[in-house]
Design a protein around this nucleic acid. Structure first.
Length: 474
RNA sequence: GGUCCCAUCGUCUAGUGGUUAGGACGCCGGCCUCUCACGCCGGUAACGGGGGUUCGAAUCCCCCUGGGAUCACCA
């Protein structure tokens, strides 16, 4: 094979077909390709495989772009669209026809089906029988173009992940390169695209291994150097079948909407099927620095949403509160809350930081800070808003009313004073106050909560609690 | 069914002939503590089966079993 002087620049690609949302499994192969390109200081190209005109939609394309953008995956070249490259495919088709590596076939779909069924019935392989292979037909409308594939010998896929995989050529048949409507088929378009886009590293899903020998045959017919192939194992659901809707959320956007951080998603998806010793947590930058193809595993992996959730919590915790303001906003807005004071929001986030596994959960937990009126959880009120704490609450209210500053330190001394006066321990006072201020039995620290809610609201919430207790006393 | 791939705790995995088989998620205890979390400490749990090779196999070979992928004018 002729080796022209090509640079050793690594070129990878991600070629989604726009027939739906971005599936996490596809996202993972996109991530592998992207990370490898970044790691190798190479190039990552995006290509839209829209030759299935029936099922491809503009909306799907936009959804995929959005999901990639959210994940922080950027591309250096493209997006290319296969439907805009028809003339390029035709040029190579001509070349194959001229060199005798391809031929026109006029067998009808019905005839093909018939020969396939016949072969099945007689125990043979359901392949095209080569009826038109040597007829040297010329172009006619309705004809397809087939590859004149070798009848014997072997084709070996040197896979960087799986090792070498050998196929007998007689298992393959003269598959179609170009459909009767002039649109190239997947296997042909992929090869021409990868070739002309200088893609030299093809990392893709396991489900493509059976296509690879066919594609290699096309490369060879064109006398072109082969790219490096690497087939990554599939993502499975808990029942070990291909990860799909019935297992739960499968689209990247769904996880975005549930309040996952893109870096957590990235981290999880990469770690599913790739490892770096015992390390579990990776920042985006770390991944770019250490990702490699050698440590991609050979076996399929089950998508574990529990682990993703835990990892998301880790990433939330590792993100400074200021950086969470923007991503959190949509989740607040969804609950009718819009924040003009981002300093306040930072303080709020700091109290929820270690307590939230998702942004959605964080927004939900933050609700009491903004409420005009606190609704008590029934059990909480019943357990803590009792006459026995009335004195303490009233004393605390009196303390608060005299306070000029509402800092955590000063608040703490106010609580101390009430503890001394009543002889109650902090826990006995903090819980009723917590219910009064948040409506719940669990919340961030009582001093920070009190400080953030602020004097006016704290006083009115305390007054409401006192009234509540008195009302029930009667 | 043909072809191809895969096989370590429930799950993600480390491991590349000699380890008390390690880590993480989950789960179960404990500590911390104003609640809930976080954090910390501890525990639970795995080499699918059978043959080889070898002084010695999770590691190498074969068979079986089990799982998965794919067999289109879809990608």
């Amino acid at each position: 094979m002729q080796m022209e002087m090509r640079s050793d620049l690594i070129v990878t690609r991600f070629p989604p077909s726009p027939t739906g949302f971005l599936h996490v499994g596809n996202a993972r192969t996109a991530i592998f390709n992207w990370l490898y390109a970044r790691r190798m200081k190479g190039k990552f190209v995006l290509r839209i495989e829209d030759t299935d005109i029936e099922r491809s939609t503009r909306q799907a394309i936009d959804t995929i772009f959005e999901a990639l953008e959210w994940l922080g995956i950027d591309w250096d070249e493209g997006p290319y669209y296969q439907t805009k490259r028809l003339d390029i495919y035709n040029r190579y088709l001509e070349r194959l026809l001229d060199s005798g590596h391809a031929y026109y076939c006029t067998c009808s779909p019905d005839e093909i089906t018939a020969m396939r069924e016949k072969a099945m019935a007689t125990g043979g392989k359901p392949k095209y029988d080569g009826t038109c292979r040597d007829k040297e037909l010329s172009k006619t409308s309705g004809a397809v173009i087939r590859l004149k594939a070798p009848l014997s010998g072997t084709t070996v896929v040197e896979d960087v992940i799986k090792g070498s995989i050998m196929f007998q050529n007689d298992e393959l048949d003269d598959f179609i390169l170009c459909r009767s409507d002039g649109i190239p088929t997947y296997n042909f378009a992929v090869v021409i695209d990868d070739m002309t886009m200088q893609v030299n590293t093809v990392i893709r899903g396991d489900d493509h291994v059976m296509n690879t020998p066919k594609q290699i045959l096309i490369y060879k017919a064109l006398d072109c150097p082969l790219p490096v192939f690497g087939h990554v194992p599939m993502v499975l659901g808990t029942d070990k079948s291909r990860f799909s809707k019935r297992h739960g959320a499968v689209s990247v956007s769904a996880y975005r909407d549930m309040g996952y951080l893109p870096d957590a998603m990235l981290n999880y998806l990469v770690r599913l099927g790739w490892s770096h010793g015992d390390q579990e947590f990776f920042t985006r930058q770390e991944l770019i620095e250490v990702f490699d193809l050698e440590h991609i595993g050979r076996s399929a992996g089950v998508f574990d949403s529990e682990k993703l959730l835990a990892l998301n919590a880790d990433h939330i915790r590792a993100t400074p509160a200021e950086k969470l303001v923007e991503p959190l906003e949509p989740f607040l807005k969804r609950r009718g809350i819009s924040i003009e004071d981002s300093d306040l929001l930072v303080k709020i986030i700091e109290t929820l930081h270690a307590r939230s596994k998702t942004l959605d959960e964080m927004a939900e937990s933050a609700l009491f800070y903004f409420a005009d009126e606190i609704e008590y959880e029934e059990k909480a009120a019943k357990k803590f808003l009792k006459p026995a704490v009335l004195d303490a609450l009233q004393l605390l209210l009196a303390q608060f009313e005299t306070l000029q500053s509402f800092s955590e330190e000063i608040l703490e001394t106010a609580f101390k004073a009430v503890m001394d006066q009543t002889g109650l321990k902090l826990g006995k006072i903090a819980q009723p106050v917590r219910v009064a201020l948040t409506g719940k039995t669990a919340s961030p620290g009582i001093f920070e909560v009190t400080a953030i809610i602020g004097k006016d609201k704290v006083i009115s919430r305390l007054q409401k609690a006192i009234r509540y207790i008195k009302d029930r006393e009667d």
